[in-house]
C-alpha cells in the first residue's frame, strides 16, 4: 500500500538486554522484510537503553528507534501506546510485530484500537502472500481445537503478536550495519492516566506446573507417596514438574495443587509423560494440549493409549529406571 513500508518490531527488554522474543521477532521480521524487499526496524523503549541499539543491528535490524524517557523506564500502557502510535504515524510501517507477552498482549490491541490497522494475536506462523504481498498469519482458535489462517485487508499497519519460542531466534552478525535513530520529543505526563502503584512477585519453588515444558504425571497405579519420588527424579532430569490425577491427590501422595484435569490444572507442556494412570477423560482433558503424550501403563486397554503418541505396556517400575538412565546418558552428550 502506498506510503506504508517496512517491518517494525516492538522490542522488549529482559534484565537490561534484548529479550529472547525480540531476537525471535527480528529473525522472522527479517524474513518477512526480505520477501517484501523492505527494511526491518526495531523500536526500543526504556531508560537508558542506547547501548542496545548496536546489538539489535547485529541481530538484523536495519534501523533502531531508541526512545529514552524516565516515563518509559517500566512498561506503562498509556505512555508506550502514545509513543508507539506516534512513531507509527511518522514512519508508516507496513507490518508491526509484537511478542505475545504481557507487554505485547496489552500494547498491541490498544495500538490497533488507536491506529486501526488490524491485528492478529498469538500467531504460530507469519508469512507474506506472494501475490498480494499481504501478511498471512495462523493462530489457534476454539481453545486450540482449530487453527485459523488470517490475511490482512487494505488497512495498515498489519499487526501481529507472535507466540514465544516457536520461531528460531535471529543469528547474530556483528558486522551488520544499521542506523540508530533517537526518537525525539518528551512524553507529556498528562497523557498518563493510569499508574502502577505496586508490583508483587510470586515466589514459586522449582518449575511451575503451568509453565513446565515437561510434566511427569502419576495416577493411582503409582501406589504410594514414596513411589512418586521416581517420577520426580525423571521430571528433575528433564527440567520439568510432576503432576497427578485426582485419585493420586485424594490418596494424599502429592499435594492437591499438582492435580491435573477437569477439576485441577490445565496444562500444555511439550512432553507429558503419563505414568500408571488409566487416562480418565476428566484427567486427559487437563493435558490434551500437550505436544507429545507418552503413556506407560500395564493395561493395554487403558484409555491413555488413545491419546498418547508413544506408549509402553508394562509395569512402570520396570520402565522408569531404564528410561531415566538412558535419558541421562543422552542428555549429557
Amino acid at each position: 500500500m502506498d506510503g506504508y513500508q517496512g517491518v517494525l518490531v516492538c522490542g522488549e527488554l529482559a534484565e537490561g538486554k534484548l529479550a529472547p522474543i525480540t531476537i525471535e521477532l527480528l529473525g522472522i521480521g527479517r524474513k518477512l522484510a526480505d520477501e517484501l524487499g523492505e527494511k526491518v526496524s526495531l523500536l526500543l523503549m526504556g531508560n537508558p537503553i542506547g547501548h542496545l541499539g548496536q546489538e539489535a543491528i547485529a541481530y538484523g535490524a536495519d534501523q533502531v528507534f531508541v526512545a529514552e524517557d524516565p516515563l518509559l523506564e517500566v512498561y506503562n500502557s498509556d505512555a508506550y501506546t502514545y509513543l508507539m502510535a506516534d512513531l507509527c504515524r511518522k514512519i508508516n510501517p507496513s507490518i508491526v510485530l509484537f511478542g505475545h507477552t504481557d507487554m505485547g498482549c496489552d500494547l498491541a490491541p490498544r495500538l490497533n484500537g488507536r491506529l486501526g490497522g488490524g491485528l492478529t494475536m498469538d500467531c504460530l506462523t507469519l508469512s507474506i502472500d506472494p501475490t498480494t504481498k499481504r501478511l498471512i498469519s495462523t493462530r489457534p482458535v476454539f481453545g486450540g481445537n482449530a487453527h485459523a489462517t488470517l490475511m490482512s485487508k487494505s488497512a495498515r499497519p498489519q499487526m501481529a503478536t507472535l507466540r514465544q519460542k516457536i520461531v528460531a531466534p535471529a543469528e547474530r552478525n556483528d558486522s551488520r550495519k544499521g542506523e540508530i535513530i533517537p526518537v525525539e520529543g518528551k512524553i507529556d505526563p498528562s497523557i498518563i492516566k493510569m499508574k502502577v502503584v505496586e508490583r508483587l512477585k510470586e515466589e514459586v519453588e522449582g518449575v511451575k506446573l503451568e509453565d513446565a515444558e515437561v510434566i511427569v504425571s502419576g495416577g493411582r497405579g503409582i501406589g504410594s507417596a514414596q513411589n512418586f519420588k521416581m517420577l520426580r527424579e525423571l521430571a528433575d532430569l528433564l527440567g520439568g514438574a510432576i503432576g497427578a490425577t485426582r485419585p493420586a491427590c485424594d490418596e494424599g501422595w502429592v499435594p492437591a495443587s499438582l492435580q491435573i484435569g477437569q477439576s485441577g490444572k490445565v496444562v500444555s507442556p511439550k512432553l507429558y509423560i503419563a505414568v500408571a494412570l488409566s487416562g480418565a477423560m476428566s484427567h486427559i482433558s487437563g493435558c490434551l494440549g500437550s505436544k507429545v503424550i507418552v503413556g506407560i501403563n500395564k493395561d493395554p486397554e487403558a484409555n491413555i493409549f488413545n491419546v498418547a503418541r508413544y506408549g509402553i505396556v508394562a509395569d512402570y517400575k520396570e520402565v522408569l529406571p531404564a528410561l531415566i538412565s538412558k535419558l541421562k546418558e543422552r542428555l549429557s552428550k
Binding site: 485459523a148 487494505s154 493395554p300
Partner: peptide, 22 residues
C-alpha cells in the same frame, strides 16, 4: 471491505490418533 483482517482458512490440527506402542 472495511474489516481489517479476513479469515482465509480454518482447519483442525491433525493429531496422531494412533499410538506407537514401543
Amino acid at each position: 471491505e472495511k474489516a481489517h483482517t479476513e479469515i482465509i482458512g480454518l482447519s483442525i490440527p491433525t493429531r496422531k490418533k494412533e499410538c506407537e506402542i514401543i
